[in-house]
Design a protein around this nucleic acid. Structure first.
Lengths: 153, 153
DNA sequence: ATCTTTGCAAACTTTTTGCACCAAT
DNA sequence: ATTGGTGCAAAAAGTTTGCAAAGAT
């Protein structure tokens, strides 16, 4: 119920994980984690940079990338490719699939459980262990179902 | 049976499609299609450039990109993102999913039919029409199942 | 003759890296 | 005091674009 309490716990957990693996806690790292906790939207490195630079104007985007790498190495965040070269980042604890509409670019989140059957079949047939959420699923959302394709490429 | 015959037919079909939509047939375009027909491997723009430059040394990579765009616009080819920014291209008629191992980068092809159930469910639940093959599925192949992750990112 | 495609060089976008300085432990 | 993190600028990597010349119809 107490959302703020829960968010703080998540922040502490993430920082503890970072620390446990020899990482240091810095204002930028704290800010990145906080933003990822509070905005569960789909944030690119640039999105994160913009948000952080409100409070810490001198944070360079290369630091954001290094921070994200560090957090990823430690298991706190994960990234997903949505299209082109652009990647988005989210907390590892928020695992879900992304359905991206190739027309309007809208993103629909789908619980990973949805992919359980497929995952089992790929495992059984190919011995392949799917880490599904690493790429978005591309297609057409309900609204754009009949339009001409072109967007995400 | 007569593979060469079939390949020629595919080439002719592709060229006809291109022509029908107002595109012109050039040596580069012919070569791109031929390569995509004969090597059903997973070719990036650079791979294609290298192969083509054997025969047509002056073909510039930007031409390859424009050719691929043109062929894609006309429905002859499709591209898939395997990781990072890199995309690979194949004939639209060769629709399949790619399972990419995040450790050894090996690629396993899976017939699209495998994804039919999931596709149906996404359609029903979210009204989302999946064009699955646009992104690879990331995970671990049989051999790398237990190793530490790190590669594809 | 017309209008598309090409080659080249240069721009762009996203991400990575080298290095000297700074800060967390 | 150490060692890891940061800012900056510059380099990658992959793809796109403007333009004048060449080529397909």
């Amino acid at each position: 119920m107490d959302k703020e309490r829960l968010d703080n716990d998540r922040l502490d957990d993430a920082l503890a994980m970072l620390k446990k693996k020899g990482g240091r806690i810095t204002p930028t790292r704290r800010a990145v984690i906080q933003i990822l906790i509070s905005e569960s939207t789909h944030l690119s490195a640039e999105d994160l940079a913009k948000r952080i630079q409100h409070r810490l104007p001198d944070v360079h985007i290369s630091t954001i990338y290094r921070t994200l790498d560090a957090l990823e190495a430690v298991g706190v965040v994960d990234h997903v490719h949505l299209g082109h070269g652009r990647a988005i980042y989210h907390l590892s604890s928020d695992i879900h699939q992304h359905l991206v509409c190739e027309v309007c670019s809208s993103v629909t989140e789908v619980p990973e459980s949805f992919f359980a059957t497929l995952k089992g079949e790929l495992q059984e047939t190919f011995g392949f262990t799917m880490r599904a959420h690493h790429f978005a699923v591309i297609g057409r959302c309900r609204n754009c179902a009949v339009t001409v394709r072109s967007e995400i490429s």
